[in-house]
């Protein structure tokens, strides 16, 4: 298949994916906006006022980047996990499998769809945060690159989850038991420099710490981790997860008999 044809196939998958989450926007775009608004009200305005400053910034300014990143992570992951698993469950994934679509196009199409939803929700949450605090931008490129790489990482994770999933329960296990704890312990609400040295070391095993901190650096210019290390971690995750996803689809795990 020529590259021009591959691009049409990629656009078709992307179009299908974006249309899917836009068609059910009440389920996909509104809930994260409401949830994050509640975080802003409770942690930012009510409790945050009593906390004082964090790393020299008022608490609301400190947590806004983390909350935006949290919504990007959750939505990128869940979009691909639920969409790809639904396609498996309804068997309409076969529409792509019988067509001359290279496997990398299938992966890129679904990941692109997940990234689009994650970033769109991130934009909505950013817009809502403007009602609670003034957002400053320290380095726009760091923000853009971090959000793009993070959403790609978790979209790939959601795809792998969906490939292995045998039921709808299986696509909620990882978000509930892995993603949520890692996100809450990933420095969204606190600076890991507040932790004892041992727990700081433990926290640095959590990849979300690097993503949240790199993103926060883009806004307020402070980070608990080295930016180069953060991007290296993201790069390693993307390459590893993409390789795994390609291998699974090529072998037809969960897709072909």
């Amino acid at each position: 298949m020529s590259s021009a044809r591959n691009m049409i196939a990629l656009k078709s998958i992307l179009h299908k994916e974006v249309h899917r989450f836009m068609r059910i926007w009440v389920q996909t775009l509104v809930p994260p906006a409401i949830t994050i608004s509640l975080y802003f009200v409770i942690f930012g305005s009510l409790i945050g006022a009593r906390i004082g400053t964090m790393d020299g910034f008022d608490y609301m300014s400190f947590i806004v980047p983390g909350l935006i990143m949290m919504s990007v992570i959750t939505n990128s992951y869940s979009n691909v996990a639920s969409s790809f698993f639904s396609a498996k469950w309804q068997r309409n994934v076969e529409e792509m499998l019988v067509a001359p679509v290279p496997n990398w196009v299938i992966v890129a199409g679904y990941v692109g769809g997940g990234m689009t939803r994650g970033i769109l929700v991130g934009c909505i949450v950013t817009f809502i945060s403007l009602f609670f605090t003034d957002i400053q931008v320290h380095n726009a490129w760091v923000i853009i690159v971090t959000v793009a790489l993070t959403s790609a990482t978790f979209a790939l994770g959601g795809l792998i989850n969906a490939i292995f999933a045998g039921s709808f329960d299986d696509i909620s296990i990882i978000p509930t038991f892995v993603l949520t704890p890692l996100t809450y312990l990933g420095g969204v609400f606190y600076s890991i420099s507040l932790l004892p040295e041992f727990w700081q070391g433990v926290s640095k095993v959590n990849p979300i710490v690097y993503m949240v901190n790199a993103f926060r650096y883009g806004f307020i210019g402070v980070s608990d981790v080295d930016l180069t290390v953060a991007f290296a971690v993201l790069g390693v995750f993307i390459v590893s997860l993409f390789t795994i996803a390609m291998m699974l689809i090529t072998k037809g795990i969960g897709l072909r008999s």
Partner: peptide, 29 residues
């Protein structure tokens, strides 16, 4: 291929199902 079991997205419109399928084969929209 016309498979034995219905294997399209039940929530999509007919036009979208057909146009997307053509796209997977590189047919312009």
């Amino acid at each position: 291929l016309v498979p034995q079991e219905f294997n399209f997205n039940q929530f999509e419109s007919l036009t979208k199902i057909l146009v997307n399928q053509a796209g997977y084969y590189g047919v312009e929209r």
